[in-house]
Structures are given as C-alpha cells and as structure tokens.
Simulated assay, not measured.
Amino acid sequence: MSEDHTRVQEFFGARAADWDRKFPGDGPAFTAAVAEFGLRPGDRVLDAGCGTGRALGALRRAVGPAGLVVGADVTPQMLAAAQRAGRGAEGALLLTDVARLPLRDGALDAVFAAGLIAHLPDPSSDLRELARVVRPGGRLALFHPIGRAALAARQGRELTPQDLRAAHNLRPLLSGSGWEMASYADEDHRFLVVAVRRP
C-alpha cells in the first residue's frame, strides 16, 4: 500500500468511531444529492470511498430491490462503523482501494463519491479507474454536504485558484479521465458535480 493510502487510512481510521456523531445533520444533504443524481430502479451503483455508509440507504431506495449497491472504502474502521450502523443491509461493503477496483469493465451504471476527490492520491488515474467500471453513458456524482467556501472556512484555510474542486480545474481533470462534466453546483449547503462517462 502506498504512503498516501496509509495516511488516508490513519486519518479516517482514527476518526471512524465518531464520524457520524460529528456530522449529524448531513443525512438530508446526502438524500437530496442522491435524488438529484437521478438513479433508476435496477441500476448498479458504487459508493466510492463510502466511509461509514451514510449514502447507502438513499442509494438503495433509489435503485430499489432489483438494483445493486456496493460501498467501497480503504479504511477497515470506517466499514466496521458502517456495519455497526446496520448499513451493510443496504448494500455490499467492500474493503478495497478505489484506484484498483475488483470489478469488471463497464460493470456499473453509476458511481457516487462523497468527499472522495480531495483524498485521491492520483486524481487523474483514480478517476480513470472509476470510468473503467462504469458503462458508456453512465454517471459519476462528486458530492460534499457543504460547498467549497464553507468547507475552507470550517478547516480554517483560504480558497485558492489551485483548488481541485474549482470548476476550471475539475472540468479538464474529468475530461482527461473519460468523463464529461454535465452539471456543477457549489453552494453553501452542498457541492455536487455530475459527469457522464464518455463512449
């Protein structure tokens, strides 16, 4: 495992037990983002970097009993917290690196990724891997329950033009990784980018 992944595991592993208690009001934002993502009954969806599985219930409701929901995370403590919260009932939980998914090409209709982009060691390569497992025309949602400015304020830092999630940086990054940005929303109460898998 790379040094980057070890750092991510250590960061989230130390916070897993208290994660849901720390952000108790995020549930409705996740539900609204999944609704806006426009999944259909029967769709196969991956929650990439699922953490404690806060999106899994909304994803399951969107795809229905005929759909497939998989939550993947590299941090064992996060998946353990998801199990304790009963979220393993909403979908299969997979301990894996989203940069090397054990899924065949085009296996999925969609990927939902909450708070993931800032933690990808190699964003271009990692987004290409997400594109690999999604069928052409399938979709990717990059989500965060608060917008870029609100998150920067929470973390006590300034927003810079180099911010990966700024539209002028994210559009070419997605484009070079097999995706086409379809919508971009960066508001106080949410960050939501939807991209479509190019043929």
Rank of each mutant, 00 (worst) to 15 (best):
D26A: 14
S125I: 00
R148G: 01
L159R: 09
V134P: 01
L39Y: 02
G57E: 15
A153Q: 07
A58D: 08
D122T: 10
D122Q: 12
W19M: 07
D43Y: 09
A32W: 01
A58T: 01
P172R: 08
G176P: 01
R139A: 05
E3P: 01
L46H: 02
R61G: 04
G71Q: 02
V69T: 02
A33T: 06
L151E: 09
Q83L: 12
V193C: 11
F11R: 13
G71V: 00
L192F: 03
R190V: 03
T75R: 07
A81D: 05
V196Q: 03
V74F: 06
L151K: 07
A131E: 11
A48P: 11
P172Y: 11
G106A: 13
V193Q: 03
S124L: 06
L164H: 06
P24L: 12
D4N: 14
L130N: 08
L159W: 01
P28K: 09
D122S: 12
R7V: 04
G42V: 07
D122M: 00
S124P: 00
A166E: 14
E187C: 00
L151G: 01
L39S: 05
T160G: 05
W19R: 04
R54K: 15
F12E: 01
G38Y: 13
L127S: 09
R190T: 02
A114D: 06
R132E: 12
E10N: 08
G38Q: 12
F11V: 03
G64R: 07
T160N: 00
L94T: 09
R154K: 13
L46W: 06
A29F: 11
N169T: 11
F37T: 03
R40M: 13
T96S: 12
P199G: 15
G25Q: 13
F112Q: 02
P28M: 13
G91K: 06
A131D: 10
F37L: 09
L68D: 00
A167S: 07
L164N: 03
A89V: 07
G57N: 04
M181S: 00
G176T: 08
F143R: 04
D26W: 15
L68R: 15
L127P: 04
H119Y: 13
L108M: 13
G38C: 10
T52S: 15
Q162S: 11
L79Q: 06
T52E: 08
G71A: 00
L101Y: 12
V45N: 02
E90Y: 13
S175F: 08
D20T: 13
L101P: 08
E10R: 13
G13Y: 08
A81Y: 04
R165Q: 10
G49M: 12
G51V: 10
V98L: 07
L56H: 04
A16M: 12
T96A: 15
F112P: 03
R61V: 05
A81C: 08
A141H: 05
E90A: 09
S183Y: 04
V193W: 03
V74G: 04
P65H: 11
